[in-house]
């Protein structure tokens, strides 16, 4: 036993080949996923076919109006035509049909007309052979007569049948006409109803408009009133504060005694926001310097001058003209 033996222990790596195979397998799976799993865009998107309707309400009306024609008995053109006017497209193919059907019913009528003439000759024949019977009462003639009678009876039966058929047809026609009339009446009623509805709607709209107009007018009046009130308030406020300013100044004046007459002094005062005095200029002297200086001192003493709390009104007070009378 030597260490070299141990050192030579080589690491037998288990299944290194299997590892390689597995690695390749993993990649094959991944590639397969990429190719088949992801649905790569193979087909261009197919263009959508969309019908563009310029007017939506038409599409709603059409089904309503196209339905009646099949219900209506075909011969009625008058009822169809007025409806086809607002809507030219769908009813057009149908009107020709009623004409065709109309031409058909008359056909049986001529047939009827042709059959009656046949009757009449028969009757005439009946009348004619009778005298012959009396003249020649032969067996053969009797047989012939019998045959003729039978024939006549048959003809009469046929005629009756035809008459019945005609009656039935006429009845049907009448019924159809009645139905048509009913339809027309219903339609007219519907139309009237729709018209009424429309009128009501229009009236409602008009009422709404009037109401809105009224409301607007009222609102405008209110606004005007409010504005006027605001203006009044503002002017009141301004005059009030001007009076306050004057009173404050007047209270600070130390009047020089015994001035003759009632001298008046005018000052132009520039104010700062907050009531501070920026500048005081003598715009019109009273002629008595003592009075002028007394008023000027009083103005400076009375700062800050009372100003309205609303800063927007300050513009009215930026340049103040203050007139002070010696005697009130």
């Amino acid at each position: 036993m030597s260490v070299s033996v141990l050192r030579n222990f080589s690491h037998s790596e288990p299944k290194s080949l299997l590892a390689g195979v597995l690695a390749v397998l993993v990649h094959l799976v991944f590639v397969a996923l990429m190719i088949f799993g992801l649905n790569w865009k193979d087909h261009p998107p197919e263009g959508m076919i969309v019908d563009i309707w310029t007017e939506l309400p038409k599409s709603v009306q059409e089904p309503v109006k196209t339905q009646p024609p099949p219900k209506q008995p075909k011969p009625v053109q008058e009822s169809v035509k007025p409806k086809s006017e607002p809507e030219p497209e769908p009813p057009k193919p149908e009107p020709p049909k009623p004409e065709l059907t109309k031409s058909e019913p008359p056909k049986p009528a001529p047939q009827k007309a042709t059959t009656p003439p046949i009757k009449k000759p028969d009757i005439a024949m009946k009348e004619k052979p009778e005298p012959i019977k009396e003249a020649k009462p032969d067996v053969e003639e009797q047989k012939k007569k019998e045959r003729e009678k039978i024939k006549e009876q048959e003809r009469l039966k046929e005629l009756e049948k035809q008459k019945e058929l005609e009656k039935k047809k006429e009845l049907e026609k009448q019924k159809e006409l009645e139905k048509q009339k009913e339809f027309e009446k219903q339609k007219e009623l519907e139309k009237q109803k729709e018209l009424q509805k429309q009128k009501e709607k229009e009236q409602a709209v008009q009422r709404q408009r009037e109401q809105e107009a009224k409301a607007q007018r009222e609102a405008e009046a209110k606004r005007a009133a409010q504005q006027a009130a605001a203006r009044n308030q503002i002017t009141n406020e301004i005059s009030k504060y001007k009076a306050m300013i004057l009173a404050k100044i007047r209270s600070r004046i130390v009047m020089p005694p015994d001035l003759p007459g009632n001298p008046v002094v005018e000052f132009n005062v520039t104010l700062l926001p907050g009531g501070d005095i920026l500048d005081v200029r003598l715009s019109k002297s009273s002629g008595h310097t003592a009075f002028d200086s007394a008023v000027e001192r009083a103005i400076f003493l009375s700062k800050p001058l009372p100003l309205p709390p609303d800063p927007t009104l300050f513009n009215e007070f930026r340049n103040l003209n203050i007139t002070v009378h010696y005697r009130e």
Binding site: L18, A19, G20, H27
Partner: peptide, 21 residues
């Protein structure tokens, strides 16, 4: 990248077996 991926997967499996063993 494909080569690197192959190699790394090979080593991943080899080490898996070795360490588990």
């Amino acid at each position: 990248l494909v080569m690197i991926s192959l190699l790394s997967w090979w080593f991943i499996f080899r080490k898996l077996f070795v360490i588990r063993n």
